[in-house]
Simulated assay, not measured.
Amino acid sequence: MDEAEFLRGRVYGADHDDAGPRSDRAYAELVGGPLDGLLLDVTDGTDHGSGEVALTTEIGRYGPGGRALYVRRPGDGSRFDWRGDAPGAP
C-alpha cells in the first residue's frame, strides 16, 4: 500500500490509532494536493466558515510545518479543493 492509499478515508489531525471517521461528526473530503483523500472534520463549521483552510502538513512543498491550502468547492460543501502550499508560520 502506498502513502496515498494509506491516508485515504482517514481524518486530518486525528491520532493514528483512531484516525477513522466517527458517526457523530460531519466531514468534507480534501481533494488534490498532499492531503488528497483525507477527511476534514467540519462538524462545528467555526474554523471553516470562510470556506478556506490552511492545514499543517509534513508532506507538502514546504516540508514539516508547511501549510496545504484548501478552498470549499462551490456548490459542494462536502469537498475542499487544493489551491497550493504555503510556508508555515516563523
Rank of each mutant, 00 (worst) to 15 (best):
M1Y: 15
M1A: 15
A4L: 12
E5V: 11
F6N: 14
F6E: 15
F6Q: 15
R8C: 10
G9R: 03
G9C: 09
R10M: 03
Y12D: 05
Y12P: 06
G13W: 04
G13K: 05
G13H: 00
H16E: 14
D17T: 13
D18Y: 04
D18R: 09
A19G: 05
A19C: 12
P21E: 11
P21F: 01
P21D: 09
P21Y: 04
S23E: 15
D24H: 11
D24C: 05
R25T: 00
R25C: 07
A26S: 14
A26M: 10
A26P: 08
A26Q: 13
Y27M: 03
Y27L: 08
A28M: 02
E29M: 12
E29C: 07
L30N: 01
L30C: 05
G32Q: 12
G33S: 09
D36K: 00
D36E: 11
G37Y: 03
L38A: 03
D41M: 02
V42C: 05
V42Q: 02
D44A: 13
H48K: 08
S50N: 09
V53T: 09
L55Y: 01
T56Y: 06
I59T: 13
I59L: 05
I59N: 06
I59F: 04
G60K: 04
Y62P: 07
P64H: 08
P64E: 12
G66V: 02
R67K: 14
Y70L: 01
Y70W: 11
Y70G: 11
V71I: 12
V71M: 13
V71A: 15
V71Q: 15
V71D: 14
V71G: 12
R72D: 10
R72E: 15
R73I: 05
R73L: 06
P74S: 04
P74I: 00
G75F: 05
D76W: 00
G77F: 04
S78T: 15
R79T: 01
F80V: 11
F80A: 02
D81R: 10
D81K: 06
W82M: 10
W82Q: 09
W82N: 10
W82H: 15
G84P: 09
D85S: 11
D85W: 02
A86R: 14
G88P: 01
A89N: 06
A89K: 12
